[in-house]
């Protein structure tokens, strides 16, 4: 069974339907890049996978568990926010605007989840958090506050913060879109090494180069629907759909 299974996912904001029945499967260890013009619903879909948005129709399963619901007695019961929080422990998310906690140091940001959510002891979490900082190349920034870090550094801390929960799945919502061009590389490098280590990842991005070199599969969305999907070389080098060709002609 795939780690992520989405079937007929629909979502409207007011009268605007932003997801018009999305089907998607992501296997364990797979890296999937969502591409498409802005307003296509890529970010919204990603947020639905983590239950940051509720869905109006369809179903999303992560590791066999229906997102936002509890299956019992042949019915799906909508979860209270507290129980939904419990589900999110296994899914890491990285945001476009980093969203680090500004009142805590880099190290404290990373420790916050394991200590406050999992109730683990600070001493043992601290060593892990330092190792994570080292992994994203920021060991010397442990006691820096987010305001003292560059955008690229903040985003790498944010990745470490998500990893501290030992997630089964990582969601990246345009992780390099808010960065100065010269800082994009350092974040993509961390993501690439994460992919090499076998992390399952869904990445909303405009970095075609990253999708080409790292993704196992590329999914192209337009107007809330999947237009084309396949290996990077199929979709990026030999697109079958006119909308895909149009988009790639603009960004490449």
């Amino acid at each position: 069974m795939a780690l992520v299974e989405a079937i007929g996912v629909r979502k409207s904001f007011g009268h605007t339907e932003v997801l018009k029945g999305i089907d998607m499967e992501v296997e364990r260890g797979e890296v999937v890049c969502l591409l498409g013009p802005s307003g296509a619903g890529k970010s919204t879909f990603l947020r639905c996978v983590n239950h940051l948005e509720t869905i109006d129709a369809g179903r999303i399963w992560v590791d066999g568990v229906p997102v936002g619901f509890r299956a019992s007695g042949g019915k799906l019961h909508e979860l209270r926010e507290r129980d939904a929080a419990h589900q999110r422990r296994d899914v890491g998310m990285v945001f476009q605007r980093f969203n680090l906690f500004p009142h805590r140091t880099a190290l404290e940001n990373i420790m916050e989840g394991p200590v406050q959510v999992l109730g683990r002891r600070k001493a043992e979490v601290g060593a892990e958090a330092l190792a994570l900082l080292e992994r994203v190349g920021l060991a010397e920034k442990a006691s820096a506050y987010p305001g003292q870090l560059s955008g690229g550094q903040q985003q790498r801390v944010a990745i470490a913060r998500a990893l501290a929960m030992k997630p089964k799945l990582m969601l990246f919502d345009e992780p390099t879109s808010a960065l100065d061009p010269e800082l994009v590389g350092e974040v993509l490098d961390v993501m690439t090494s994460l992919a090499r280590d076998g992390m399952t990842m869904i990445v909303v991005t405009h970095e075609i180069g990253f999708a080409r070199s790292v993704a196992d599969r590329v999914v192209f969305l337009v107007d809330g629907a999947v237009v084309e999907s396949g290996t990077p070389s199929d979709v990026l080098d030999d697109p079958q759909q006119p909308r895909t060709r149009q988009f790639l002609a603009k960004v490449l």
């Binding site: 983590n50 929080a85 999110r88 945001f95 906690f101 500004p102 406050q116 959510v117 999992l118």
Partner: peptide, 27 residues
């Protein structure tokens, strides 16, 4: 307090009460 702070707290599995106490109120 920026909405992104609440979302980040949610994304690491924080309950609403913990989010209020650890993330939103201090800011």
């Amino acid at each position: 307090v920026d909405e992104g702070q609440t979302e980040a707290a949610k994304s690491i599995g924080m309950t609403p009460m913990t989010t209020l106490r650890r993330v939103v109120l201090p800011q």
